[in-house]
């Protein structure tokens, strides 16, 4: 899994490439925690090149979402989720937990 980050004036864009599973979820958690630890709570996760997200990865996203939304200080949103991943997230009821954007430009504009 590869992670790249870009900081905008009002939010952070984090792009992930590859699988987010039990092996790689800690790496994603570390990257997201680094952003929130810096006091930045408006985060976009670009899933365009994500090939798989397991429950371990989703647990990281849910925990980050809880942290970001605390005190109404921000939010974690998802962008460019591949159709097969979105379909499974729908099936297990996770899409209601995150705002989802079709492109990163719209997600950046949201903040």
């Amino acid at each position: 899994m590869n992670i790249t980050q870009k900081q905008f004036k009002r939010c952070d864009l984090i792009s992930v490439e590859g699988r987010i599973d039990s092996a790689t979820a800690p790496q994603l958690a570390e990257a997201l925690e680094a952003i929130t630890a810096a006091g930045r709570y408006k985060i976009i996760l670009d899933c365009c090149n994500v090939s798989f997200i397991s429950s371990a990865g989703l647990r990281v996203l849910v925990n980050t979402q809880k942290n970001c939304k605390r005190y109404n200080r921000g939010e974690l949103v998802l962008a460019q989720i591949p159709e097969n991943i979105r379909s499974t997230l729908d099936l297990v009821g996770f899409t209601e937990l995150f705002k989802i954007f079709n492109d990163t430009l719209s997600a950046v504009g949201y903040f």
Binding site: S22, F52, S54, S55, E83, N84, S87, T88
Partner: peptide, 21 residues
Amino acid sequence: DSCTTYSVETAVDEACSNIIE
């Protein structure tokens, strides 16, 4: 289809992660 394949892959990944953990 690709969505069903992905969902089955997810279930098996969860099961195998549980076995290891």
